[in-house]
Nucleic acid binder design. Structure first.
Lengths: 331, 331
DNA sequence: TTGAAAGCGGTACCAG
DNA sequence: CTGGTACCGCTTTCAA
């Protein structure tokens, strides 16, 4: 059995109160008493029980983070940024991936009982679930998800970058533009679609449509491409603006390269700037993923420690990365 | 203040013992009593305190996982596989990334006080740290790290795949082979290097060397390539066998493509099969990353629940993925 | 079937 | 400076 504070007290010939004080440098303890306690603790290899301490302090010293999935480079980087800041602040990190499971709300509620505050990402649980948590006093920060009332939020500037991206393809001469990806599937995607629409509205004669994909993987992109090609080349738009890089990469692979495909017959853009995007020459938008996670951790910490009460909504800048998939067409 | 079990007891007009029994379906409680309790709990929106429960049960119902970093697709997938299995088993997941910080041992020790068992990946902390934890009775599973005594371990078959990979480039005609990556930096890499050596030892006239890279990123690969080119083309080996895909991709980008670079002048191979590898046509080795995490979670669960005591060492199969970076040379 | 009470392992207040 | 002790919120044994 692991030694308890009582064992140490006995060994050192003092009370448990003194042991507690000596070990945590709180209150005042005479030098030699402290020394005796420390020695006893050392001898017994005593480590205070986290459980006992947590109960007494009524805090977990842990934060949660809920994300839909960890696949792809995006979420992993965000979680990493979160973990780095949280552990700097002496708080452990509990992760929960919902995978779009129906039980997600229950899982999130459960997680809430194990931490002092949590970050909730994107499309994981409904707003009602978030509101219930907040109502119960749980500090919450939303990440990659539009603000809900007074709840803190951290987002990349999807809208702004989408406008820039839209203008970019318009400048390159695209007039028939198809947005690929389901805006209803994620708040981020909805913002991107809105931004592209905004850019298009500044130019007349633009033919803009949306093509909901079946998911956001490469195969979904490939499927979209095949479907588009099936309708004949004349039906092809000038540019496919995709909701993320995987879609775009799948699409590009199917459409073919320079000369007869991308970018000469049709431009393609993505979002996220994954590593493969560089190798494929994909024009895309880079997000500060680490910073998104880090900022969320910081905001949450302020909430948990009570340093701040007024809600904050952070919008982090993104960067347009122009590559060959939108190179000036030579046709 | 959140309601406690006492509030519910009072509201329902029973003792806290009865509330506990009713809520957790343990012991026997009369139907109508149970109903009263449930109603009271509902009215008060009572959720049992995890802290109280954990202390009483003396368990955390949480598992930890320690990894060096979450960058790159590899660790993220492993963690995801781990989380999926753990949460299936009703155990929360605490993550800790050491980043190679000097404080890593302390962080791991700290994590150990917050969970019932933990998975320790690769090069995060020294064997002594692991042994100390195990000696103290903490269930531990090693992941992507060679077995230590009786401690459970889960690994991909690095050695075996490395042999296959080595034979592959030999078959393709390579005789001067350079292994890129520092075998001392990670047990996985050491195994891969050993496998390549083994393959080479079966053929005579092979000139095999190792070139430690400065890290495992694309820039490290690029640096290696530049250095190699600086020595003149005659000094170039027939094949660069890289410890991972990022290295290989950085290397390839610098060496140039078909005709004058890869694969005609020099072959390149990687490890991991990241998404970009497909687009770059990189021959590589695919690991069952999700399964690595999932298996570790399963083993750990057996240890924590006491279902199994005999140590196990799992070796998961990997798959050689041949692409154009080792295409038969035409020179 | 139910209640009283003894922990679980700490923290922190209050006397001395 | 130190000790005694009342919690923190729940689980579980023991009697009734």
């Amino acid at each position: 059995m692991r030694p308890t504070i009582r064992d140490v007290a006995q060994q050192a010939g003092v009370s448990i109160a003194t042991v507690s004080r000596a070990l945590r440098d709180s209150g005042s303890v005479r030098q030699d008493t402290r020394a005796r306690v420390l020695e006893a603790a050392e001898q017994l290899q005593f480590t205070p029980s986290r459980l006992g301490r947590q109960l007494a302090e009524r805090r977990h010293a842990a934060n949660g983070i809920v994300f839909p999935d960890l696949s792809g480079p995006y979420y992993a980087e965000v979680v990493l940024g979160y973990e780095a800041v949280a552990s700097e602040r002496e708080r452990s990190v509990l992760i929960l991936s919902t995978h779009g499971r129906a039980a997600a709300p229950a899982m999130v509620e459960d997680l809430a009982t194990r931490c002092d505050g949590m970050v909730i990402m994107g499309r994981t649980v409904a707003d009602e679930v978030v509101e219930r948590l907040v109502a119960r006093g749980m500090p919450v920060v939303l990440l990659a998800r539009p603000p809900i009332g007074e709840v803190d939020s951290v987002n990349a500037d999807n809208r702004g970058s989408a406008v820039l991206l839209g203008r970019h393809v318009l400048e390159r001469g695209a007039r028939r533009i198809t947005f690929v990806g389901d805006p209803d599937a994620s708040p981020d995607v909805a913002e991107r679609w809105a931004g592209v629409r905004e850019a298009a509205s500044d130019v007349r004669g633009v033919d803009l449509g949306v093509l909901p994909s079946d998911g956001f993987g490469e195969d979904a992109g490939a499927a979209v491409a095949r479907e588009a090609l099936r309708h004949g080349e004349d039906e092809l738009p000038d540019a496919f603006v995709c909701a993320n890089d995987e879609l775009a990469l799948g699409l590009m692979a199917e459409l073919g390269g320079p000369g007869t495909g991308v970018p000469d017959r049709v431009m393609v853009t993505g979002w996220d700037d994954v590593m493969a995007a560089r190798y494929a020459g994909l024009t895309t938008v880079r997000q500060p993923m680490r910073a998104l996670g880090g900022t969320a951790a910081r905001l949450l910490d302020e909430l948990v420690t009570g340093t701040r009460t007024a809600p904050r909504h952070e919008l982090l800048p993104t960067e347009l990365v122009i590559r060959t998939s939108t190179a000036p067409t030579t046709k």
